[in-house]
Write a protein that binds this DNA or RNA. Structure first.
Length: 426
RNA sequence: GGAGGAGUGGCAGAGCUGGUUGAAUGCACCGGUCUUGAAAACCGGCGUGCGUGAAAGCGUACCGGGGGUUCGAAUCCCUCCUCCUCCGCCA
């Protein structure tokens, strides 16, 4: 979430940012409301502190009087304190409500888009940052979409997933399971080679972690909730991994912190329908290797570039055609300031599938989770957090099948053969 | 799941028969003196949030979280969480 001080001091910038997200003037009024509520908060805090100070002074006096044996005087003072105490209770309650109200308001305001973000209301306004200029896969006449290929070669069993769990929970089997595991290991190894520490985090997180990365309350309905224990199934490894540093005050010498984690990801995807959900295009459970960096604000943009290069390298090695989009304001996620989406061309269904999203959240997440660093003068500042998928598996799996189908079966890209230990799926 | 014990500043560890205790002491860390340099020794500093202020500072809150008793709580009470020990169960 944004800092109130930031909204106060950079209001023009925030307004311009929200407009990029296609916010109308009416919605933007929430900024004034925030400042108003914060003014009230300060007022109440000042009064409450004064009341407490009075109580403290009087209580000290009473203590002294008791020591000196002046009981009667002490009793008289007690009555006075009680009156002040009553008033402070009222103010304290009011302050609590004001603070709550302020937080609720701040939760409704998304991150300010970076200067590079184009204005726009929907995905139609995303800009192509880097297009695919080389050849597209040359598929045979009778090329099949991945859902047919999976059935033909018995790689993924959706019916079984439905039987065991429900729609959108694919069951990988045989060579399909092996290919999936090969991809996982390939991505983990590449992340390690790029200097990321490997993390295997918990798959369930508590409420504080969900709030820290902005999954709560913004995407409440997107996550599976284990209500009995008030825990949430992670929608991405970003949540547990970034929260490792929640509340920390770091020494800048630790930057950049580079972490990667492989986890299954769980998303309810309520309201999705149509051809978008066919096959592996959109599922409730998928595997993903996430890369996370925590960085000094001065270097976070360079870091974003570095993460982009990492994802490009992975796709190059997998020989998949891809393009990179700069998300427009309207398509940008709530917490992000700048996001590049990677889309892979799945040749048989002739669709671009999003396989990675690389974002700089700047201080939006770190403000929520109070992740800071101390500069040389001992001053505390919010750190920048970044993350990206490297990569999301279900869709990569789909594109690999479609793009590499031949008369002799499905060809495995060179880079994966050490992992699959087979060259073709026949 | 049952029984018991414990949670204090970066760490260790006092305080816990309620009253200048934001909190002794040691270590670590930072600055200084000394030294050719280092170590040792000595001196000083060393938490976080909020409010106020140009700043220094001042005020206030925080001793696992929340609530209560009291004029006043790290200290008493309730509740939740976490950790440790023993028993049970178990991959």
């Amino acid at each position: 979430m944004l800092q109130v001080s930031y909204i106060r001091n950079n209001k023009e910038e925030v307004v311009a940012g929200l407009k990029k997200r296609a916010w109308n003037d009416d919605r933007i009024k929430v900024l004034d409301q925030v400042i108003k509520v914060d003014d009230l908060r300060k007022e109440q805090k000042t009064e409450l502190d004064q009341l407490f100070a009075t109580v403290n002074t009087l209580s000290g006096k009473i203590g002294m009087l008791f020591k000196e044996g002046k009981r009667e005087e002490a009793e008289a003072q007690k009555a006075e304190v009680s009156a002040v105490k009553e008033r402070s209770k009222v103010i304290e309650e009011a302050l609590k409500q004001t603070e709550h109200q302020l937080t609720e308001l701040l939760y409704t305001i998304p991150n300010v888009p970076d200067a590079k973000v184009p204005a726009g209301a929907s995905e139609d306004d995303n800009e192509v940052f880097q297009d695919w200029v080389k050849d597209m896969p040359n598929l045979p006449e009778n090329a099949l979409p991945h859902w047919d290929l999976m059935e033909k070669y018995n790689l993924v069993d959706f019916k079984m997933g439905v039987k065991i769990t429900g729609a959108g929970f694919p069951l990988f089997r045989g060579k399909g399971a092996k290919l999936q595991r090969a991809l996982i290991n390939f991505f983990i190894d590449e992340a390690e080679a790029a200097g990321y520490e490997e993390i295997i985090p918990p798959l369930l997180v508590n409420e504080a972690s969900g709030i820290g990365t902005g999954s709560l309350p913004d995407k409440e309905g997107q996550m599976y909730h284990a209500e009995k224990d008030n825990l949430y199934l992670i929608p991405t490894a970003e949540v547990p991994i970034t929260n490792m540093y929640r509340g920390d005050i770091l020494d800048p010498s630790v930057f950049p912190i580079k972490l990667s984690g492989f986890t299954p990801c769980f998303r309810r995807e309520a309201g999705s329908y149509g051809s978008d959900v066919k096959g592996l295009n959109r599922v409730h459970q998928f595997d993903k290797i996430e890369i996370v960096q925590i960085q000094h604000p001065d270097h976070s943009m360079d870091t974003l570039g570095e993460m982009l290069e990492h994802v490009k390298m992975l796709l190059d090695k997998l020989e998949l055609p891809y393009r990179i989009l700069t998300l427009c304001g309207g398509d940008l996620t709530f917490a992000s300031s700048l996001t590049y989406d990677f889309e892979v061309f799945s040749a048989a269904q002739e669709k671009w599938l999003e396989v990675s999203s690389v974002s700089n959240f700047k201080t939006f997440q770190s403000n929520r989770m109070k992740l800071r660093y101390k500069d040389a003068n001992g001053k505390k500042h919010l750190a920048h957090t970044l993350n990206g998928s490297a990569l999301a598996l279900a869709r990569i799996f789909a594109a690999l099948l479609e793009n590499n189908q031949t008369e002799d079966g499905i060809r495995i890209p060179e880079a994966l053969r050490n992992y699959t230990r087979f060259d073709y799926i026949k």
